[in-house]
Computed example of a mutant assay.
Amino acid sequence: MLYGWNFDHYLSDAYGFMLQTYSIPFCKFCSFLNYFTAQVSAWLRVFICLDRYLSLSHRHKTWFSQSRNVLIIIIFIIIVFTIINFHFFLFACYYNENGTVNIQARHYQIYPLWDYINLGLYNCAPFIFMIVFNIGVIYHLIHLRQTSTIRKSRIQHRSISLTLVITTFLFLIMTIPATVCFGFFFSTADSFVLHLFDSILYTYHILSFPIYLITFKEFRQEVFLLIIPCK
Rank of each mutant, 00 (worst) to 15 (best):
F169H: 03
R68G: 10
L164A: 14
R154F: 12
V70I: 11
R145I: 03
I150V: 10
A178T: 12
I79H: 05
S57H: 09
A92I: 01
H60W: 07
L50H: 13
I74F: 05
N96Y: 13
V180K: 07
V70C: 11
L50W: 15
W63L: 09
F169D: 06
I150T: 04
F91M: 11
S67K: 11
C93M: 08
N85C: 13
N102G: 09
G136H: 00
L164R: 00
T167G: 02
N98K: 11
H140Q: 10
I176L: 15
S55T: 13
Y94S: 14
F182R: 08
F171T: 00
Y53A: 02
R151I: 09
Y122C: 14
S161F: 00
L141M: 08
Y122V: 13
Q104Y: 08
A105D: 03
R106S: 14
V132F: 14
R52C: 02
P126G: 09
H107T: 15
I110W: 06
I155V: 11
N98F: 08
Y108W: 14
S161V: 00
L56V: 00
R154K: 07
F182W: 15
T149F: 04
N98Y: 10
G183T: 06
F88S: 08
Q146T: 03
I83R: 05
T163E: 01
Y122M: 12
S65L: 07
F76I: 14
R154G: 01
H87S: 15
F133I: 01
L71E: 06
L121V: 13
Y95I: 03
V70T: 10
I135D: 03
I48E: 10
N102A: 09
T163W: 01
F182H: 12
G183P: 04
I135L: 11
R158S: 09
